[in-house]
Write a protein that binds this DNA or RNA. Structure first.
Length: 939
DNA sequence: GTTCTAGAAC
DNA sequence: GTTCTAGAAC
């Protein structure tokens, strides 16, 4: 189930059987980004098997909002609890009668891969209604199948008479409830902690309705609930994985995917404080894994509300029995709690693994305080205390964090969102057919070996383990230091998870070396600087001060890519980007032509089909070049380089949410869920670890921000044209620093973006959007199928070093504009991979500009290693990371030159599966076929 | 940011 | 023969 912030007033078609206009995971983010005045009006979609959809209005607020739904020529008011049915292909618009209400539309998601699959699409249409009220409505309603777009009231009290009823027998109250609970579980909470605190405490008592109990007909255990995942009810016929119990509520939510063919199901326990990102982790895992997973969340297992531990146990048993893997989303604060779950796996001879989300306490508390839709109600300031209390309990338990010695086949310690992203990604390969290949690509000697080595270090797949010596024995059994010999089945289980563990190990190995290495690279005050002359301008300036060689310091966490920078994608709802002016279009067209010609020429070259001496440009190329050069001149612009520009190529992506990462796994899509304006950042998975204190970017900046901040990189805000690069410092503090030679802010060719921002009327290309604050254009040299730039128009913002806290609002606005464009791009190209938003750590082009890029990176303009790495390593700073840095430190500091060079020159590694290759042609060939790339989290 | 070129490496 | 790298110029 995905939720997307509905663009108020915009007309959109009922998205049935086709990918939603927004990325699945991102939609979830939207849902988090749209909290407006803590009042939400939710319009849920109810797809039916007979090809109809319904929208139902529910609200968690007390304002009893009313929404006007315009469908064809018959606009109607939709009141609380009411719903209307829509026909496939209908277009509808929503207008809130209360401008202060955000409108959310929850829609069954659709997996990209299944998007074009008729069967999948059909199965996806089985979702039921939500809330109890909706249930009643649904059961009584049957869409007016034949009615032409007329809205059929399906609510208990239809304003205008009862409409047709839903004939699908699955639309029973029970089914509706079930759906509701799924929806709750996956669209709101991120922390999934609610139950945690009580689970131990006793809230678990009951057991009553076994989660696994079969309850009558119901939609599948599918993942309808996963954040956007879609899935529809493919598994409809199966028993509710995870026990979607009869009562509809007590069950886990499945992702509707088929069980792994060659690997046994596993039980994955998540452990962590409320707000640590457990639900987000689960959501992303279900979304990105190719095999069946069931999410058991105590906070929502009972009809969408907090349930008991017994219900969780039952749901887990049911899931495993079905052959689905099961991720249990509870706090699991102490070993005793974890033991009962582990027993569920043990009694079936299956492996139990653990992911310990050990996020910073303050971060968890902040998330809890900020969220507004936690199923268990664990939200708001009043619950911050609970977080601290639980943290205290964990500390006293003597069994925190979870240890492999408890009987887990593996334990992944995650300290920030990048880690969580990497963990999600690692588990997402479990059971996939190509895990072996991926593991190999990640550089793991072998899956088994990797797993073993991880186990060798105390049975914990943490940094130490990852760095440990190669295993010499097979399986985790005899190699663990603190774990008794395991059974053959356990060893087999470890083997089954070998690829997963190998991927994690690879990530950890790099994670381990990255912080210190990067820190020391920082120019201003890095570690080295401290040693030599803390505060000394000379040391700071040296940039090279003793930087460790850092070769490969794992600066780029392969496995952590997730993070799409995009973290908190915000509601891109407002404002329709204005379409370019006529002049701009014309120019854009010319540029496009040029680009096209160039592309064609390059294609030929790269294909090696018709190679020619470089000294003999083709007619097309000459033409292109001529156009590029002449265009600017024609426009009377000074500077700009041909093509307008080159927009700083975008690049990157944010690898692991966070600086590298994704907010939570992939965003963690969730990570993004936070509304920048609210200062929340839950997301994890994807995007970066911006929130965590260990976020790579923070680490980097921490060492540098102290000094510095000023000047390195950017010229003074007031500067005009060029020539002042680095010579002026915003704060004017460092007179001793020399201009950073990396910045060519005065070079004519570097002014293209700035010229466009300051003089849009002279733009040589199509302007996708423009207002007083920003202007959006396509990157003239797109590094992916979709690549645009949102450029700040404030003359003072010549580089990211000029950004301050006061610019957070601008960044949020840039995010909105970007999201809007992404939404449109997705509508036009539904199958495109996830987008990410972010900045280059050392941009070449003058003027603050944010890259909005699809992570396919399939473009002839992406030619060399520098291009590749600027998108797929930490050279790319995810938006949310930048936002976080501004929030916490007030400004950004550029990375040290050595770090920059290291990032730019590191080996070519797939941002999806972490496979490394030698040449550009190889990486280009690989990414178009890599499934992991298609599953990347992001916008 | 880009193109172009030459030379090295594979 | 292909690919990468680096430098110059824009």
């Amino acid at each position: 189930m995905a939720t997307l912030l509905f663009p108020i007033g915009k007309i959109i078609p009922v998205p049935r059987g086709v990918p939603l206009p927004l990325g699945r995971a991102d939609i979830a983010r939207y849902s988090e980004a749209i909290t407006v005045s803590r009042v939400q009006c939710t319009v849920e979609s109810l797809n039916t098997d007979n090809g109809q959809s319904a929208l139902k209005l529910t609200s968690k607020g007390s304002q009893n909002p009313t929404v006007v739904i315009g469908l064809g020529e018959q606009p109607r008011e939709l009141h609380q609890g009411q719903s209307v049915l829509l026909r496939d292909g209908d277009k509808f618009s929503l207008i809130s009668t209360r401008p202060d209400l955000a409108i959310r539309v929850q829609l069954p998601g659709h997996e990209p891969a299944a998007a074009g699959n008729a069967a999948a699409a059909a199965s996806a249409a089985a979702a039921a209604v939500s809330t109890a009220a909706a249930a009643a409505a649904a059961s009584a309603a049957e869409s007016g199948a034949g009615t032409d777009g007329a809205m059929a009231e399906t609510t208990p009290k239809p304003p205008g008479g009862a409409g047709p009823e839903l004939s699908d027998k699955r639309h029973t109250p029970a089914a509706a409830e079930s759906y509701s609970s799924r929806s709750e579980a996956y669209t709101s909470d991120e922390g999934g902690e609610g139950g945690a605190e009580e689970e131990d405490g006793g809230a678990c008592g009951g057991g009553g309705r076994g989660a696994a109990s079969e309850g009558g007909p119901r939609p599948s255990p599918t993942a309808a609930g996963t954040a956007g995942a879609a899935q529809g009810l493919k598994a409809a016929g199966r028993k509710g994985c995870g026990g979607r119990g009869g009562k509809g509520g007590a069950r886990g939510g499945g992702n509707g995917k088929p069980p792994a063919r060659t690997t046994p199901p596993v039980l994955l326990l998540l452990a962590g404080l409320p707000g640590s990102g457990k639900s987000t982790f689960s959501r992303e895992l279900l979304r990105t894994s190719p095999v069946a997973w069931v999410h058991v969340n105590q906070d929502a297992i009972s009809d969408g509300k907090r349930g008991t531990r017994e219900q969780c146990l039952a749901a887990a048993r049911a899931a495993l029995e079905e052959g689905a893997c099961c991720v249990v989303d509870r706090c699991h604060a102490d070993a005793a709690q974890r033991d009962v779950l582990k027993a569920v796996a043990a009694e079936r001879g299956l492996a139990a693994h653990c992911v310990a989300l050990q996020m910073p306490l303050e971060l968890c508390a902040k998330r809890v305080a900020a969220r507004t839709d936690h199923p268990g109600g664990v939200q708001g300031d009043s619950f911050k205390k609970l977080v601290y209390t639980m943290a205290g309990q964990m500390k006293k338990s003597n069994s925190w964090p979870p240890a492999a010695s408890e009987g887990f086949t593996s334990v992944m310690d995650c300290h920030n969102d990048a880690d969580a992203t990497a963990a999600v990604r690692s588990w997402a390969v479990y059971g996939s057919d190509d895990t072996s290949a991926q593991a190999a690509g990640a550089g793991a000697p072998s899956a088994t070996a990797a797993a073993t080595s991880g186990a060798e270090s105390g049975g914990r797949l943490d940094a130490a383990a990852a760095a440990g010596p190669p295993p010499t024995t097979h399986g985790s059994a005899g190699t663990r230091q603190d774990v008794p010999p395991r059974s053959a089945s356990a060893a087999a289980a470890a083997d089954a998870a070998a690829a997963t563990l190998a991927m994690w190990r690879d990530y950890v190995a790099k994670r381990k070396s990255a912080p210190s290495g990067i820190m020391s690279f920082f120019k201003p005050s890095g570690t080295a600087a401290k040693k030599e002359s803390p505060g000394g301008a000379a040391a700071a300036k040296a940039g090279d001060s003793g930087l460790p060689a850092a070769k490969g310091a794992g600066v780029s966490a392969p496995g952590a890519p997730g993070a799409s920078a995009v973290g908190g994608v915000a509601a891109a709802s407002r404002g329709e980007p204005a379409r370019a002016s006529r002049g701009g279009e014309a120019a854009g067209k010319a540029a496009a032509v040029a680009a096209g010609a160039k592309t064609a020429a390059q294609d030929k070259t790269s294909a090696g089909a018709t190679r020619r001496p470089r000294s003999e440009p083709t007619a097309d190329e000459r033409s292109v070049k001529r156009q590029a050069v002449e265009a600017p001149k024609a426009g009377g612009r000074g500077g700009g380089n041909g093509g307008g520009g080159a927009v700083a190529t975008g690049v990157s992506a944010s690898p692991a949410r966070g600086a590298a990462g994704s907010g939570k796994a992939g965003s963690a899509p969730d990570a993004c869920g936070d509304s920048p304006s609210q200062g929340r950042s839950e997301g994890n998975g994807q995007g970066g670890s911006s929130q965590s204190g260990r976020n790579a970017f923070s680490v980097l900046m921490a060492s540098a921000s102290r000094k510095a901040a000023d000047g390195h990189g950017s010229a003074s805000a007031s500067g005009g044209g060029g020539g002042d690069e680095g010579s002026r410092h915003p704060g004017g503090a460092h007179t001793g620093d020399e201009p950073d030679p990396r910045f060519k802010l005065g070079a004519p060719w570097a002014q293209a973006l700035r010229n466009t921002a300051l003089h849009p009327e002279q733009a040589q290309q199509e302007v996708l959007y423009k207002d007083d604050q920003v202007i959006m254009i396509r990157d003239v040299y797109p590094k992916a199928k979709h690549h645009a730039l949102v450029i700040a128009r404030d003359p003072a913002l010549r580089s990211i070093a000029d950004l301050r806290q006061e610019h957070l609002q601008l960044l949020a606005h840039m995010q909105q504009v970007a999201c809007k464009w992404v939404q449109e791009a997705r509508t036009k190209d539904p199958v495109t991979v996830a987008f990410k938003l972010g900045f280059h750590a050392v941009p070449s082009m003058c003027q603050v500009h944010m890259h909005v890029v699809s992570q396919d990176f399939d473009s002839p303009a992406l030619k060399n290693k520098k291009h590749w790495n600027s998108f797929t390593t930490q050279f790319f700073l995810p938006l949310e990371v930048v936002q976080h840095e501004l929030e916490s430190r007030g400004r950004l500091t550029l990375i040290d030159q050595n770090v920059q060079h290291q990032l730019e020159g590191q080996e070519l590694r797939c941002h999806g599966c972490a496979k490394t290759v030698k040449t550009m042609p190889e990486i280009k060939k690989h990414i178009v076929a890599c499934d992991a790339v298609k599953r990347l989290p992001g916008l």
